[in-house]
Computed example of a mutant assay.
Amino acid sequence: MAAAAGCNCPCGRSARPEAGLYGLVGALLAQVQCRHGGQLHSCARDGARDPRGARHQVIEEQAGSGGAWLGAERLWGEQAWGCMCLRTEEVGECGACEGKRGGAQMSAQWLWGRPLSSEETLRLLEASVVHREGALLALNKPPGLPILGLSGELSLSMLLPSLRRRLGLTAELHVVKAPTRECSGLVLLSSCHRVTEQLQQFFSNARQRGQHPATYHAVTVGVPAEAEGKIRTGLRWQQQGDTAMVVPVPVPGPRSLARKEVKSTLTYYRVLGAAGGCALLQLQPKTAFPEQLLVHLTLLLCPALGDHQYSSRVGRVLGVPFLLPPEASPARTQVLDEELLGRLGLSPHQLRHLPVHLHLQQLVLPQGPLHATPPPHFLHTLHCLGLPGYKEP
């Protein structure tokens, strides 16, 4: 859904889509517009990253690797999101623009007024439907919303019963395929267990035939040495302090594979465009493992833009990238050079709130492909970097 060209704010000022990267991005990131007092706004909220566990691993392997997209969770950092009209100078909290307003230029810091309620999040989900046919429902979600959250944490699965009622569906909704928390893109839901089983079998058979039912796009910091190729490695979970991380196992042993301590993974990639040391990549995973694509991109020495979890594994000496061992590279805010920060219009402080540029753009179903437009922050980055823009199929 494109941004409205000039929606009116209740305070009387007109919305302006060209209002600067992280004013506009914050307002439009969910790529849907929720209504407050009959006026168009865009909202999102923030939440804490959950430590991965077996429960998440099983669900995400069944659902497929990828991303997740609703501004209702950890989207830009540690604070909570508020609501913002699309105007250049004043930003208000959710609810007809009442609340604090400031005269400074619109910036990311104004976006974190308060967390969205479950009701506000439901309105966003309802507006994010991109396909509805029979028992199938597809949403286009922003980065940040987990499919399963921690106890008491807002998540998609928690909201599915309410979403079903709002959409007038009689049967329960459940997840067929979904990306991980950090990513944006397609979430496929079903209200029929038989349809779910058929689709999961379809995806499995397609991968066995060498087909790629899921296609992602990623903006990377760095350009792969080869224009296309594949990334093959074992992956496993490893505890690092209080955090569970995915680490590569270049040559997994047969015992570890048999015990399912390590999973053999494979991703095909193709460079769609490159400019200024960054690239737009097409990624087609043949296997499904949580955070597979983010880790695979580090093995290409081209971490995803906005990856504050694994990008520290790629170091640089005199501009030449090299791979660091996971034990020596704890998670931290991604490091970008001053030139790239300037092209993106970011300060170092804003950088830590930059979302991951990894988007599940296409799912091929038996009846044909589904597509999801990348979120506005992704499209704006393509424009800033001079990379190929998104084109409707």
Rank of each mutant, 00 (worst) to 15 (best):
V317Q: 14
T180Q: 06
L351Y: 11
G6L: 11
S184P: 05
V295Q: 00
L163D: 05
G277D: 08
R132P: 02
Q109W: 06
R164S: 15
P248V: 04
S42A: 15
A279S: 15
P330W: 09
A279C: 08
G149M: 04
G229C: 08
G210N: 10
C83S: 12
L160W: 05
L186N: 00
S312H: 09
R101P: 07
G276D: 13
S117P: 02
P355W: 07
D337E: 14
A138T: 01
S155D: 05
S155I: 08
C85D: 11
E338F: 01
A5L: 15
A206W: 08
P376F: 07
Q109T: 10
K286A: 15
Q292Y: 04
V314G: 00
R232V: 15
D50F: 03
T180H: 08
E153K: 12
T233D: 01
S65H: 04
R114H: 14
A227K: 12
P17K: 05
P393N: 09
V271A: 10
V129N: 02
G319Q: 11
L324I: 10
L351M: 13
G273D: 10
S184N: 04
P51S: 05
P179Y: 00
T215S: 09
S128C: 05
Q362C: 11
T287R: 07
A214R: 01
G37C: 12
R123N: 11
K391M: 03
G99M: 12
G306I: 10
E291M: 12
G71H: 04
G82S: 14
L283H: 06
Q33M: 06
L299P: 02
L160Y: 06
V130R: 06
Q198C: 08
R123K: 12
A258Y: 10
P213K: 10
R164F: 06
A72P: 06
G6A: 15
M158N: 01
S157P: 00
G37K: 01
H217N: 07
G234R: 09
V314W: 01
R74S: 10
R255C: 06
K260F: 09
A27D: 01
L300S: 04
H296P: 01
P374H: 05
P248M: 05
E327D: 11
V262S: 04
L75Y: 10
G77A: 07
G368H: 07
G273F: 13
C7G: 13
L235F: 01
S14A: 15
E78H: 12
